[in-house]
Structure formats: structure tokens, C-alpha cells
């Protein structure tokens, strides 16, 4: 799963998708995840980092992580699969 390449993501959690002109806002955890996704980190690494920083277990995190990915897909912020 990769983010669209040309997304503009600012430190304030503002996201601009230049291909559609839509803009979005993220909360803190959403911003952290999206930054890791952009760095190409896989779900295992993301889970490890997040469960280390936040008071959440891996199972619970997984549930909300995939819910979040679902939202990104719905908003078409995810790159079409390359293969």
C-alpha cells in the first residue's frame, strides 16, 4: 500500500491532493501514520512504533489502522497498485 506520490502533507496535518484539488486535515495519530506510510514503512513497523509511543495494544491498533487505511482508499489518496 503506497500513498499517492504527489500528495502535499504539511506539519499542521493539512493534506493537499494536487491531482484532484481536494484538501484534508489529519489528527496527530493520522499524521504520524501518513508520514510513516510516505517513508515506505510497512504495517508491522508502523504498529511497533505506534504501540511504543501510545497506550494501545497491537490488536486494537490494527483495527483502527485498517479503518484509517480504508478511509484513505475511500478518499483515493492511495496509489493504484503498481504490480
Amino acid at each position: 500500500m503506497k500513498l499517492k506520490k504527489n500528495l502535499a502533507i504539511s506539519e499542521t496535518g493539512f493534506v493537499f491532493d494536487p491531482s484532484t484539488g481536494d484538501s484534508y486535515t489529519l489528527n496527530t495519530t493520522g499524521l504520524e501514520i501518513i508520514q510513516m506510510l510516505r517513508e515506505g514503512k510497512n504495517p508491522e513497523i508502523i504498529t511497533r512504533k505506534m504501540t511504543k509511543t501510545y497506550d494501545v495494544d497491537a490488536n486494537t491498533f490494527e483495527r483502527y489502522y485498517y479503518d484509517f487505511i480504508g478511509m484513505l482508499k475511500q478518499m483515493q489518496l492511495v496509489a493504484p497498485d503498481e504490480e
Binding site: 504539511s10 499542521t12 496535518g13 493539512f14 493537499f16 484538501s23 486535515t25
Partner: peptide, 11 residues
Amino acid sequence: DLSEFEKLSTL
């Protein structure tokens, strides 16, 4: 400017 829109919408 997009940055102004960003400011108003996030802050």
C-alpha cells in the same frame, strides 16, 4: 494562496 486556505482551515 493555498497556504492561506490551509491556515484558515486548520488553525
